[in-house]
Design a protein around this nucleic acid. Structure first.
Length: 916
RNA sequence: GGGCGGUUAGCUCAGUUGGUUAGAGCGUUGCGUUGACAUCGCAAAGGUCGUAGGUUCGAGUCCUAUACCGCCCACCA
């Protein structure tokens, strides 16, 4: 064996990834395969925003979905993954506005709507491709010929169709209500886009003066500026303190406006002063009370959150400044009581974090209850499955309490609402085609509503709009409904629930069968990755490496010389095997390194197998499979069963970990080591060994392909070529083909009858080897030194005698001084006795044994075994024996027998040691 | 206020239906460079599975309570 290996010693992913991706794509493997038949497997990719920043969340969904897609494709099922991008209204508009301000120092208002939208399209054309290129780098095997963008003509048509249908059904309405207003963005946002953060504020206590009375009502508020918009003071109807005041008139401080004192049982008598000021124009609870009592609404805020004319002397001030001024003016007027620190929930914008102001405004809404009901039923009766299923409860809870969805946004970037206002009759015309006159009065003085739709409105149509809906296209008929919706649990309400509702409404079908929710990727300390924290890890750093300066503090401490490039496979394997469904993942860069090492291990095992194939003799006389051969095949059968079961249960991470362990811990560490010996025998033995090496490696590559597509494809091609070049044309049971990406997925097979016995025997071999290695390490025996040994094997002698060469090689024993006996008269002098289950191994050490130390070691071992015996005896003496299943009891009996035998051997070894 | 998740080795985490001695990666310790791989090999140390009860022949796994951490939902000013 002195010829050289043609492959480099280390796997170099940089020379592989781009080439293979382009090749797969060019070969058309990403599109549904022409030969495939059966029910298609389809995933709609969650469209990333065109804002173009790749983050680990993208890497996560690509890894998960590509795994599912590649697995399905290998199963021979027609498989389609539809990619695309989202226009992401607010996010993109903000980016372009910022860019505009920076480069040309103009605002969007200054350049006007048309120019701004054009500018945003240009921006999208320029940057929209970046994100898809990065998805390609992650190995996403999606069908790019079907790529879509939410503002495409086709999808825009779908949006308009959906809007019109809902409007015609009365499920979309326009109205004036209290909504969440984002003053900085100058747009309404939905309830979901508001996040509440607990903050320290001040609670202000003051007196509400009453008209024609010296009495006043004490009231507490966190927002004194809203006093200006009060239209009532409310008390609890049964509150003795205030009951007599109900029906009286209160005077709004500073403004002197007269408002009623009302009774409403919403008021909590225990809280604050037990009296509540009512500002229907700026507080959701007050709004509802106002509705109940028919109170007028006073809006004291402008759209930019400065005070309106209703604020009288404070008009034009910012609300926070107004708060201060107002309070000090009230102090001067003697109306204040006191202030105290207070902790409460402040509504903030999900995007940007500014304070959201509840305001009354005219907006478009989707009536949700009728849409929610069928979506709710689908999960409750099990037609739609959520993984992990605990999310079903969260989903249900949300849908049961759903409120109408404010879908209009005062933005420019997005789907313009297809509604036209007539200036003649004031009516609204909603139409699929742009109308040229009012549908009600025929007047041509109509103008389109300036608002655009919430980005999530178009996202809700994604699974079918991307396939051609509302047209009855071939794709829609073939690939809809889709199969799997894989996404982060953080957008369960934003996206998943809305797709379910819209899908049922517009297509009458559930848009997918299963929702698989993955977790959030966090830093190694479990913190959310964020720009402000500066703890984010860019996936591209992991793929390509990164200079120390670009890394966050904690990563730089760990990698002072910078992060090494580790490749796509390493990142994907980390994300896939490091996570369980629905759970957040704290990303450790060391884990990525470990997985890069795994790819390298694969590569090198591949090199060994390749060389074995290259050198394998052409077929000769048939040879019996060895114990190791049988063992690795038995183990593989067990693995295939487990993997099959785990995939069926969506336990992709656990499946990956098991394949990893099998490949490294069993195939590479044990089988390949034995295989080297068998290869050295030459002839039929070498031939057969090479064949089995190929068979198992081939299976591993297939199983691993969805996890680490690049290294597996690269190796598999080389393996195939080498095997086909061999005179015997080694062929794995799955057969060869043009590419691993379309090779057959290994099916689960039943274990053979003798598998259990084979595994037991080889496990015993491994135990013997480990014991000897352990003893050698303990005694500091030079690695090269071959030791004599006698194995006393009783019942196991017959088959174990055949393992001499294997044992000798793995445990570095001297094959010429190795014997396997069924019993022994006198233990060899100067031999170290080892007990391996029911076996004894006498290991000949050149140096004489330190009897004292040996006795101690044996005594310690004996102690462990004896305590085990004691435990087992009492267990078997108790009710266990007749209550537990027979098989389990028998197992424990056998264990006890073994332990007793082992104790006996240890005892006699101790005895003889003391005698010498 | 309601709901959910977590608590397992120094760190980050697995552990599928209850059943031998609870696993992995990283880290730690010792040994090792001739043929797959130092991105490696061999060996070792390290765990009362948050706490308290309960069910069971048997509990990391099921039930109840509880502590701490995190998340989601919710109109107490």
């Amino acid at each position: 064996m002195d010829d050289t290996y043609s492959l480099p010693k280390a796997y170099d992913f940089t020379s592989v990834e781009a080439r293979l991706y382009a090749w797969w794509n060019d070969q058309g493997y990403f599109a549904p395969q022409p030969g495939a038949s059966g029910k298609p497997y389809v995933i709609s990719m969650p469209p990333p925003n065109v804002t173009g920043e790749l983050h680990l969340g993208h890497a996560m969904f690509v890894a998960m979905e590509d795994l599912m897609i590649r697995h399905s494709r290998m199963k021979g099922v027609p498989t389609l993954w539809v990619p695309g991008t989202d226009h992401a209204g607010i996010a993109t508009q903000l980016q372009v506005e910022k860019d505009l301000l920076r480069t040309e120092e103009v605002t969007r208002e200054e350049i006007g709507r048309e120019a701004f939208v054009e500018r945003t399209w240009a921006w999208k054309r320029k940057y929209g491709g970046i994100i898809t290129d990065q998805l390609r780098r992650l190995g996403a095997s999606c069908d790019w010929s079907r790529e879509r963008f939410t503002l495409d003509e086709g999808l825009s048509r779908a949006v308009r169709e959906a809007f019109v249908r809902l409007y015609e059904k009365g499920l979309i309405y326009r109205g004036t209500y209290l909504i969440n207003w984002s003053p900085g963005l100058r747009t309404a946002v939905s309830d979901l886009e508001v996040e509440y953060s607990e903050e320290d504020v001040t609670l202000y206590y003051f007196r509400y003066p009453l008209k024609g009375s010296d009495e006043s009502i004490p009231v507490a508020t966190a927002r004194p500026e809203t006093i200006l918009g009060d239209t009532a003071v409310a008390v609890h109807p049964e509150d003795e303190r205030y009951r007599h005041l109900v029906g009286k008139t209160a005077i709004v401080p500073i403004l002197g406006r007269e408002i009623p004192v009302i009774a409403d049982s919403y008021v909590d008598r225990e809280f604050g002063t037990g009296a509540l000021k009512i500002t229907p124009g700026h507080d959701p609870a007050d709004y509802e009370i106002g509705q109940r009592h028919g109170l007028p609404i006073v809006s004291v805020l402008h759209r930019d959150a400065t005070m309106s004319d209703e604020a009288g002397p404070y008009a034009g001030l910012d609300r926070l400044e107004c708060r201060q001024r107002m309070w000090s003016d009230m102090e001067s007027a003697g109306l204040t009581i006191r202030t105290e620190p207070y902790r409460t929930q402040i509504p903030r914008s999900q995007r940007g974090g500014e304070i959201i102001e509840p305001m009354v405004s005219t907006q478009w809404f989707v009536r949700m209850k009728p849409l929610a009901e069928p979506a709710l039923a689908a999960v409750q009766d099990g037609r739609l499955r959520l993984v992990p299923d605990r999310f079903a409860k969260i989903y249900t809870n949300w849908l049961e309490n759903i409120r109408d969805w404010c879908v209009s946004r005062q933005l420019w970037w997005g789907h313009r609402i297809p509604a036209w206002h007539c200036s003649a009759c004031g009516e609204i015309t909603v139409a699929r085609q742009d109308p040229d006159r009012c549908a009600h009065c025929g007047n041509t003085a109509i103008e389109q509503d300036p608002d655009v739709l919430d980005t999530w409105f178009s996202s809700g149509l994604w699974p079918f709009s991307t396939l051609g809906w509302p047209d009855d296209t071939e794709d829609l008929r073939t690939f809809y409904p889709t199969t799997m919706m894989e996404t982060g649990y953080d957008i369960l309400f934003f996206w998943v629930a809305r797709m379910v509702m819209m899908g049922l409404e517009f297509t009458g079908k559930l848009p997918f069968e299963v929702v698989y929710l993955h977790g959030t990727i966090r830093d190694k300390y479990g913190r959310r990755m964020s720009k402000t924290l500066g703890n984010g890890i860019d996936p591209l750093w992991i793929l390509d490496g990164a200079e120390p300066a670009t890394l966050p503090e904690y990563a730089r401490a760990q990698y002072p010389d910078g992060l090494p490039a580790m490749g796509t496979d390493a990142l994907r394997l980390t994300l896939l095997t490091g996570s369980t469904p629905g759970k957040d993942l704290n990303l450790q860069l060391e884990a990525v390194e470990a997985n890069r090492n795994f790819a390298n291990k694969l590569w090198n095992a591949g090199r060994l197998v390749l060389s074995a194939v290259e050198r394998a003799p052409a077929a000769s006389e048939p040879v019996e499979p060895t114990l190791a051969d049988q063992w690795i095949q038995a183990r593989q059968r067990a693995l295939l069963q487990d993997v099959s079961r785990l995939f069926a249960a969506y336990q992709y991470g656990e499946a990956g970990r098991q394949i990893y362990e099998f490949f490294w811990g069993e195939y590479a560490d044990w089988y390949l080591e034995v295989a080297k010996l068998q290869l050295a025998r030459g002839g039929g033995a070498a031939h057969q060994t090479a064949r089995i090496m190929v068979e198992i490696l081939d299976t591993c590559l297939r199983l691993l392909h969805p996890y680490t597509p690049y290294v597996t494809e690269e190796l598999w091609g080389r393996l195939r070529d080498a095997c086909q070049a061999h005179p015997a044309a080694f062929t794995p049971s799955g057969g060869w083909g043009p590419a691993l990406i379309i090779a057959r997925w290994p099916d689960s097979v039943d274990p053979a009858a003798e598998d259990a016995e084979v595994m037991r025997r080889f496990d015993l071999v491994r135990e013997i080897v480990r014991s000897v290695r352990n003893a050698r390490a303990e005694k500091n025996v030079a690695p090269k030194q071959r030791l004599p040994a006698t194995i006393v094997a009783a019942a196991e002698t017959a088959w174990l005698a055949e393992q001499g060469e294997t044992l000798a090689s793995l445990a570095r024993l001297d094959p010429d001084q190795l014997s396997v006996e069924d019993k022994i008269q006198h233990p060899p002098v100067e031999a170290m006795p080892l007990t391996v289950g029911a076996l004894e191994v006498y290991l000949g050490l050149r140096e004489s044994i330190d009897a004292g130390a040996e006795s101690e070691r044996l005594a310690r071992q004996l102690e462990v075994v004896e305590s085990q015996i004691e435990r087992l005896r009492s267990l078997l003496a108790g009710p266990f024996a007749d209550r537990a299943p027979a098989g389990v009891v028998a197992g424990e009996r056998q264990r006890l027998a073994q332990a007793e035998e082992e104790a006996a051997r240890l005892g006699s070894q101790l005895q003889s040691l003391r005698e010498t």
